[in-house]
Write a protein that binds this DNA or RNA. Sequence first.
DNA 1: ACTGTCAACACGTGGT
DNA 2: ACCACGTGTTGACAGT
Length: 286
Amino acid sequence: MMACNGMASSSSFPSNFMFHTETPYEEGNQLTAPLGSLLHTGPQDLRGVAPVMGKRSISFPGIESCEEMNADDDLSDDGWQAGEKKKRLNIEQVRTLERNFELGNKLEPERKMQLARALGLRPRQVAIWFQNRRARWKTKQLEKDYDVLKRQFEAIKTENEALQSQNKKLRAEILAFRGTETSDMINLNKETEGSCSNRSENSSEINIDISRTSVIESSLPPHQILPYFPSIRPADINQLLHNSCKPEFQCAKVENEAPEVSFSNLLGSMGDQSALWSWPDHHHFH
DNA sequence: ACTGTCAACACGTGGT
DNA sequence: ACCACGTGTTGACAGT
């Protein structure tokens, strides 16, 4: 069979051969041109001759372009045969393939054969093009996903910094509050000993919890806390305050967390990344 | 000369 | 075993 682009070619090829495609948009395609003109098309297609690849090279001087005797004639998937040069697909072939790729990135055998016939390519060439195209798409997708994740990371980082700053302020308030109301705190501790201290062996921890509660109640109404905890409802805040003296309740120690959310952690939290790039069946993507 | 892109390949893998 | 696919690589080619 005669493959396009100098793939397999015959030494006894009719020079006045005309290739006809089957798809309507092949109108004006170089493929419809006589062989003579095929040999002198633009740089997009049928470019110059280059050394044949590897062991399969057998030179056939004079025939280096796309030649299609009969689409049904020979569309074997054999590798390069005679006088074949590695050539780029012409612009119309690529356009057609692109359109088909948009319809579906998976190439069913029937479609492969149709495309091969229509474009004067070997089915293997069509398959390889789709394979490479999927790889290119995935690379682009990876770049896009990376950008998205990077932006998310920056946003979370900024949020984290704001939280730390807020936390610092709160701690300062706690210290100030303790300084002015030490005696009140002592009394308060005595009053609350019965309810809380018997549940914990660490009385100082309870102290902190109580004072935190006080500060939150006195200086940060729930609607001011909420922006930093968008998923927390006012009712949740009340619940938190109510539970804060329980020993099992641990206040979030934001200041002890890693100062920056690791990007790899962010990635890890997204679970199996491969699922993101897998092809949905009969997909249509963009 | 160097570099980027692309067609084609080799190889490993999973599904049947 | 066969096939299709993903991945990495190679060589040709074009643009700079």
